[in-house]
């Protein structure tokens, strides 16, 4: 009895940490159950994002897993992450993160469309070609022609203008996300106008 109880307790810890799963959820996946129970409060019931919590729907699996991990080890340290995600990630096991990432990445994503439409042409040009004169590389090379992302490189297409703008500004302010990415150096070279244009453009990209 003791063995069964402790095994069950370990399993519960592995999959849900301190979160209890109540009720019969039928055939929904563990990732979906965990997401609805824990993430929807901030990230929206369909993972489309809400206020400062970014859209997770359609994000690459590896990126989501990496952000949970870097929130857990505090490498990702911007103020909202500290305030909300550090606590959440501490309670999210690696197993749970895998399930969550798989679930969110499978959802279809809606573009936020909250940028400044007048800046989309400028933003598109900057996104596509960068600015060699200012040593700003093209974003397409890593993030894809439509901001698709790949593996650990996040999908940017359709993310909220407000979120992207803060993220780009924060690298310039000295905050971090994950290790070994070129983004801090790149974002630091962007002017305020560049950030407005790129963030606006991307918010409309499907």
């Amino acid at each position: 009895m003791k063995l069964i109880r402790s095994t069950l307790a370990s399993l519960a810890l592995v999959f849900t940490s301190n979160v209890a799963l109540a009720g019969d959820w039928g055939s929904t996946s563990l990732g979906e159950r965990l997401a609805h129970r824990n993430c929807a409060w901030c990230h929206g019931t369909s993972g489309q994002g809400f206020a400062t919590a970014p859209r997770l729907a359609g994000q690459t699996r590896q990126y989501i897993e990496n952000q949970i991990a870097s929130s857990r080890n505090h490498m990702r340290d911007n103020p909202k992450t500290q305030a909300f995600m550090w606590g959440v990630a501490a309670l999210t096991s690696r197993e749970a993160a895998v399930h969550l990432a798989e679930y969110f990445s499978s959802l279809s994503a809606r573009p936020a469309n909250d940028g400044n439409e007048r800046l989309t042409a400028e933003g598109r040009a900057l996104y596509r070609d960068g600015s060699p004169a200012a040593n700003i590389p093209s974003c397409v090379v890593c993030h894809g022609p439509n901001g698709e992302g790949r593996a650990e490189i996040p999908r940017l297409g359709g993310l909220s203008y407000r979120y992207l703008k803060r993220k780009l500004e924060q690298w310039g302010e000295g905050y971090h996300a994950t290790a070994l990415v070129p983004m801090p150096g790149i974002a630091t070279k962007l002017s305020a106008g560049d950030i407005e244009a790129i963030s606006s453009y991307l918010s409309f990209v499907e």
Binding site: P137, S138, H143, G144, R150, P182
Partner: peptide, 15 residues
């Protein structure tokens, strides 16, 4: 190096 890596080792971006 932003694209080609800190010591020019390359990177698997979208391309």
């Amino acid at each position: 190096t932003d694209c080609h890596g800190a010591s020019g080792q390359g990177y698997r971006g979208y391309y």
